[in-house]
Design a protein around this nucleic acid. Structure first.
Lengths: 339, 339
DNA sequence: CGCGCCAGGTAGCGCGCGCTAGTAAACTGC
DNA sequence: GCAGTTTACTAGCGCGCGCTACCTGGCGCG
């Protein structure tokens, strides 16, 4: 069933009018058939003829014209966080994309640019909705609205329940279960991640308190020796368990510790976050947290579709995505006699 | 100067006609001013009034209408390879995006989907051009053309000079310089990467021959023990230098070697490819190859713009992007007495 | 037989914008 | 003072499609 590209002469694109004249019916009829317009009665015979002719000519609706006439672009933009977690985001995108595609929408993806030179996508492309993983900043919302974006997910007008960072909580619980009582949270020094880092630090403190642990915080810059500094200060402070913002930070810590002669996990347990593929390949293999990014993607897509199409259909229950502990070799229990 | 969103009543969008009637000029005049249409003489006074009014009303051209009328969408799609190298691709995208934005184009990005469920972006969005890092497969080109994509970069009709994988060559030369004579190429077992892997293997063989080295190949699957198998077989075969397809494979090898009690780089030198950020954090820090992805991005954008706008302007010289050796701790010279 | 009804269509407007063809007035040149 | 040119605009078509309003002919029904 290949599309026969009837390269007429100057390779003009095939329009609905072409189908109509070729078949001797009106353009409206063609439109009704191809869009399955409700409330129109078209005989089965005509319907078939139109579809067949459309296929034969290789008709492809002109999306710009359709967008102009209908006022909807069937296009949704996903704004990726400027995080180095693309590997895990991939599942997410794919799921979201599939879900949206099934509903007739096209997913566009963008990452915010540091440079700020290129104009944001929502200013140059008409969109039905914009979705993001985290709530947008008021400035971003302002900018989008000014550019004509009406639907934003998560909805800035609905007071979102605070995302409780279950992964971070799980990191703390894992270390506590292993008998660690003096913990440290290794935040990222990347300024782009400060929001999320702060949230995780808050979650970590809360979880540590609940588990009866003390906890301190250090910001790790991957580009300098701050990992070494942190590791040495933790040894001085008898910290035995470290939860990292992500696997990159964890890797930096493990590397710095080994170079400083600190045994991982013998002297220090380190747990990462995100389950980066590379994290399990090095020695020691990194314990980490895996998020159900695919589920998150589906959920986001469902939320968006509901928002566009009237929302009364699917409430898209605000289930927190599945979080899973991946226990490998970089964390170890404190011996019973030392607890 | 903020855009004053004059929410008239039902928040209709501001059109050029609104500006025209509000100013008592014709819609054409507004169009000429806002598009700086060549061959039209508009008095400076009128010009200023139109621009001011457009700004005051918060006018934003309707991209779909513009696309319909002009036949151009000013939109370019970049198809990312389905590779796990997003970190390095990021620079590339950003540079390409900036370059295109400066020329008035919007860059869309997509990655092919394994599932194949969601329709490709070029079928649902009108594009001025599609760009990719590697030449597209004939099937992909066929599909794009059938969907109305006329400009594809790299141009499938121009016989592209074979990309000679300078990074791989540099890996071999580095190991050879260090005195290694028995090499191995650690390919990826990821089926998505076979094309590139094959090219690198060909480049590696050629370079090894030139350098007077013997070389063998193994495919490493990150998800099983093939790295361990490979490392052990290399020890048996007295292989001393390994060049990896990318840093992930290199990391797998280093991890497997250390677990098998093989010293890196004492017994085996390993060099990666791509300079993944995490690769320098682990112990031993990975020697690798860094590509000038930013330059590549600019080059791709220039090529595309030239293709859209008539191409006689900028030939965009087919310079191979800069490739740089990053020497760290996972490679070491063979002692003089053992050469 | 007259009427309403309904299946099965068609005519054509409007979406917002780019741009060609035209036009009226002002400004030359001689 | 008048033809020719230039300046500064305007009228309105056409891009391809969605969709409302309308039309027509056959059929059931009292």
């Amino acid at each position: 069933m290949d599309t026969q590209t009837d390269t007429g002469k100057a390779s003009r694109r095939v329009t609905a009018k072409d189908i109509a004249t070729s078949l001797g019916v009106s353009r409206a009829t063609v439109g009704f058939v191809l869009n399955n317009t409700a409330g129109q009665t078209i005989s089965e015979a005509t319907r078939r003829r139109v579809i067949a002719e459309a296929h034969r000519l290789g008709y492809r609706p002109h999306s710009a014209a359709r967008a102009l006439a209908s006022g909807r672009t069937n296009t949704v933009l996903l704004i990726l966080p400027d995080w180095p977690i693309d590997f895990s985001v991939r599942n997410n995108i794919e799921e979201a994309s599939n879900a949206l595609d099934d509903a007739g929408y096209t997913l566009l993806i963008t990452t915010p640019h540091d440079s700020g030179r290129a104009r944001p996508l929502w200013e140059t492309v008409d969109l039905d909705a914009v979705m993001g993983y985290l709530p947008f900043t008021p400035q971003a919302i302002e900018a989008m609205r000014a550019a004509g974006v009406t639907r934003i997910v998560p909805d800035p007008d609905t007071l979102a329940p605070p995302y409780d960072e279950p992964g971070t909580t799980m990191q703390v619980e894992h270390l506590a279960d292993l008998g660690h009582r003096a913990l440290a949270y290794a935040d990222t020094a990347d300024r782009r991640l400060t929001t999320l880092g702060q949230e995780r630090w808050a979650a970590a403190r809360l979880a540590a308190e609940t588990a009866g642990c003390r906890i301190e915080r250090a910001a790790i810059d991957l580009d300098n020796e701050s990992a070494t500094t942190a590791v040495l200060s933790w040894r001085a402070a008898s910290v035995t368990g470290v939860l990292a913002y992500n696997d990159d930070v964890a890797a930096a810590l493990v590397g710095a510790a080994l170079r400083a002669g600190i045994d991982i996990p013998g002297e220090l347990s380190v747990i990462g976050h995100d389950d980066a593929p590379i994290a399990r390949l090095f020695e020691p293999r990194l314990s980490t947290i895996r998020l159900d990014t695919a589920g998150l993607g589906r959920q986001l897509a469902a939320l968006t579709i509901a928002s566009i199409e009237g929302s009364d259909t699917a409430p898209a229950e605000q289930a927190t995505p599945t979080v899973q502990l991946i226990e490998r070799d970089s964390t170890r229990a404190i011996p019973a006699d030392k607890r």
